[in-house]
C-alpha cells in the first residue's frame, strides 16, 4: 500500500507575471486530513485546482498515489473527487439524479449507480429530500449533497474547498460531523477560512501566504512555533512573519 497520498514538488503556478503558488513542496500521508489555511489570494484554491488536474502547473509536479498530475492526469482523476467552493449541483435534477449522474460519469452502470445512490442517501440522511430538485434546496442541504456527490465515486483522495462557507452554525456543525466520520478512511484536503474548523478537524495544517507554504504542522505545533496558546494569534503571526516551515 502506498503510504504517501500526495507529494508536491516545487509546484508553481503563474498567471502572466503574478506567481499565485510559489514552489510548493508538500507531502500528505494516506488517510490524513490535511487543512490548507490562508487569507484570500493566498493560493489555496489554485493549489487544489492544480492537485485535482483542473489547472496545469507552470512548473513543478505532484504525485497523487504515485501518479503525476502533469503526465497521468486521467489516472489521477479516477482516484480523486472534489467538492468545490461554490455548490456544484445540477439544479434541475433531483438529489437522487445528481448522485446517480456522478456515479455514472465515474464508470458505474445504471444498476450500480442506483444502488450506490441508495447507500449514499442513507449515509448522508438525504432520504427526505431525495426527490426534490437540487436547485430549490437550502444552502446547507446543497452543500451536504455536494459532498455526497464527491463521495459517491469512492475517491481515495477528497478535496473539500471551503465546504462550510456561508453556512449557518447548525449546518456547519452537521458537515463537521460528516467530515469527522470520513477521517482515516480516505485522504482529505480541506481548504477553509474558519480557523476553528481547521483546528478541530485536521491532523495537520498548512498555512499559505502570498502563494507560499509558510508553516506546516499540527495545530499545537503551529501555536508553539508562533509562541502563543491561541490558534488565531498563531495564524496571524505566521501569516505576517512568513513562519517557519516544519
Amino acid at each position: 500500500m502506498i503510504m504517501t497520498a500526495i507529494k508536491a514538488s516545487a509546484l508553481t503556478k503563474k498567471y502572466k507575471s503574478e506567481t499565485v503558488v510559489d514552489d510548493l513542496n508538500l507531502t500528505v500521508a494516506n488517510g490524513e486530513l490535511f487543512a490548507l489555511l490562508g487569507v484570500n489570494g493566498a493560493g489555496k484554491s489554485t493549489t487544489i485546482k492544480m492537485l485535482s488536474c483542473l489547472v496545469r502547473p507552470t512548473s513543478g509536479d505532484a504525485e497523487l498515489l504515485g501518479d503525476s498530475i502533469t503526465e497521468a492526469s486521467e489516472k489521477v482523476k479516477e482516484k480523486i473527487n472534489v467538492s468545490p467552493q461554490e455548490t456544484a449541483v445540477a439544479p434541475n435534477l433531483t438529489v437522487r439524479e445528481n448522485l446517480e449522474l456522478i456515479a455514472g460519469i465515474y464508470g458505474r452502470n445504471h444498476k450500480e449507480a442506483r444502488k450506490k445512490a441508495n447507500e449514499v442517501i442513507e449515509e448522508f440522511g438525504l432520504s427526505e429530500i431525495m426527490k426534490k430538485k437540487a436547485g430549490i434546496l437550502s444552502g446547507g442541504w446543497q452543500r451536504r449533497l455536494s459532498i455526497a456527490m464527491a463521495l459517491i465515486s469512492e475517491p481515495k483522495i477528497l478535496f473539500l474547498d471551503e465546504p462550510t462557507l456561508g453556512l449557518d452554525v447548525l449546518a456547519r456543525k452537521e458537515l463537521w460531523r460528516i467530515i469527522e466520520r470520513l477521517k482515516g478512511k480516505i485522504t482529505i484536503i480541506l481548504t477553509t477560512h474558519y480557523l476553528e474548523e481547521a483546528e478541530a478537524l485536521s491532523d495537520r495544517i498548512g498555512i499559505m501566504s502570498k502563494g507560499k507554504l509558510v508553516a506546516l504542522g499540527t495545530a499545537d505545533e503551529l501555536m508553539k512555533i508562533a509562541n502563543t496558546n491561541n490558534f488565531e494569534n498563531a495564524f496571524i503571526t505566521l501569516c505576517e512573519n512568513g513562519g517557519n516551515e516544519k
Binding site: L54, N81, A88
Partner: peptide, 17 residues
C-alpha cells in the same frame, strides 16, 4: 459559470463525452 463544470472537469470525462 458554476462550480458544476469544475466538478465535471475534474472527473474522468473526456472531451468527446
Amino acid at each position: 459559470a458554476t462550480s458544476f463544470m469544475y466538478r465535471l472537469f475534474t472527473s474522468p470525462m473526456h472531451s468527446g463525452d
